[in-house]
Every structure is written in C-alpha cells, then in structure tokens.
Simulated assay, not measured.
Amino acid sequence: MDEGRFERYDRYERCLVEVLDLLGLAPPPAPSGDERNSRQARRNWQCQVAMMIMRETVPQQTEELFEPLIRAAVYEPDPSHTQRHIRPALAAFGRRRVQTRLLEYLRTGTKYEIIGAADAWYCSYLRVAGSDGKDDPCTDLRNDFQKTGLHIFLTNEDLGVRCRIISLLDLRADKNPPELRPLASEVLRIARAHPDDTIVAQIRSAA
C-alpha cells in the first residue's frame, strides 16, 4: 500500500467530512474494512462528496467553512477535481482571501501541500458568480506567487514539487521585475540541464 497516498486520502477525507458537517449534509456510506485499502473505492467516495459540496450554495463569509474548504482543495489528490473546492471558496470568500491562504501553504507546507496549493492556485483564477474574482485581479498576489514559486524551485529539489511549480512560472526576463530576473534565469538554467524530461517539458518560452 502506498502510505503516502493513503495518508493524504485520510487528511482529505477528514476535510470533506468537516465541510459536510458545517453545511448540514449527510455523507454517503464511506468505504470500510478492506475497502479502505482500495484506491478506487476511496476515490469514488471522495468524488461523490466533492460533488455534493460544489453543488451546495456555501453561505457568504461563513468563517468556519474557510479553512476546511481550503484544506480540501490542497489535499485533493486529483488536480482536475481541485476546482470542486475552490469554486465554493471563491464564491463565499473571494479570490484575494483564497489566494492569500494558498500562498501561506506554498511558503510553509509539506511537499504534498505545496503541490496541492499550486494546483489550487491555478484554479483560483476561475470566474465564479457571486465572488469578487471578476473585480479584483490580485496582481500583487500574482507577483507574490511568482517570487514564492521561484524560491521554491531553487530550494526544493523534490521532482513533483519542481514539475508543478515550474508549470505555473513565467520565466521570460521581460515579464519579471529586475530583482527576480536572476532567479528566473537560474530556474531556467537548472530546468534546461535537468536530467528528468518532465522538468524540461514544463519550461515556458523565455527570452
């Protein structure tokens, strides 16, 4: 059994149950016994619950829901499903608050949290009816993400972290402020020389 994967599943499921409780929703029967070791059984349950959450109207500014929703987004194992948690978070709390919390995960999280927060960051630019996302481009936070992402790539050698982070960075010199250009250049140099093709494949065009 992949302990890393199932540990993440445990944390993710605790977040899902907490969000359901706060929304007053009853979860479907969860896998038990031997099914707890079945990736497919657990993912089926997780996807059912995530869809329940996305379809539910999250009350505006309900404070106790904020952290569980963000944690669920960070611990979602499948990045293609992360938006199921980011959408209600954006609708209830707005892009700025969501992105500010994701930046904290990026700066202080474990490797799984960094990857999950990066997935969630990508989804945080979705347009969601009822949120402030369409009104606040959060340009300053986008710049903070670029700076944070460059530092993460240069200081964290985990392949999964580097692959996910570099896919979100803009490494073109003219798109970075002067103080970040040396960092972007170093990231580009490392990526081009990296022995793993997945890193090389993620490089964006750079001047």
Rank of each mutant, 00 (worst) to 15 (best):
D119R: 15
A206N: 08
D136E: 15
D158F: 12
P79V: 14
R162T: 06
N143W: 03
D170F: 02
E104V: 09
R96P: 02
A201D: 15
I86L: 02
W121D: 10
H81C: 12
A184H: 08
K134Q: 09
E64M: 01
C163E: 14
K147L: 11
R84Q: 12
Y105K: 07
V161S: 09
L90C: 13
R87A: 02
N156W: 11
H85M: 12
G160P: 11
G24M: 02
M54S: 08
T57L: 04
P29R: 14
Q40E: 13
I114R: 07
L180V: 08
P27D: 04
G94D: 06
M1C: 05
D21L: 04
Y75V: 05
K175R: 10
V58W: 00
L106D: 05
S167R: 07
H81N: 14
F153D: 05
D144W: 01
C15G: 04
C123G: 05
T62R: 01
F6A: 03
P31Y: 01
Q46L: 08
T82Q: 13
S205P: 01
L102M: 07
D34N: 03
F6I: 04
M1A: 04
R96G: 12
G130Q: 06
L141K: 02
D158K: 14
T139A: 11
D170S: 10
Y9D: 07
T82M: 08
T155M: 11
Q48V: 07
P178I: 11
T100Q: 10
R36H: 05
L154Q: 13
R172W: 03
L90R: 12
D197S: 14
I152A: 08
L150W: 11
H85D: 05
L65P: 00
R8G: 02
Q61T: 02
I199C: 10
K175Q: 08
F145I: 10
A193H: 15
P195A: 15
E35P: 01
E3Y: 03
L171P: 02
T139N: 10
Y125Q: 06
D21T: 10
F145K: 12
G94L: 05
T139W: 07
R87N: 06
R142D: 03
R107H: 13
A207S: 06
E63K: 04
V49N: 00
E18P: 00
Y122E: 07
G24T: 03
R84G: 03
D2R: 07
A207N: 09
T148Y: 08
V200N: 15
D119W: 15
R142E: 08
D135E: 15
V19K: 02
Q61W: 01
T62S: 01
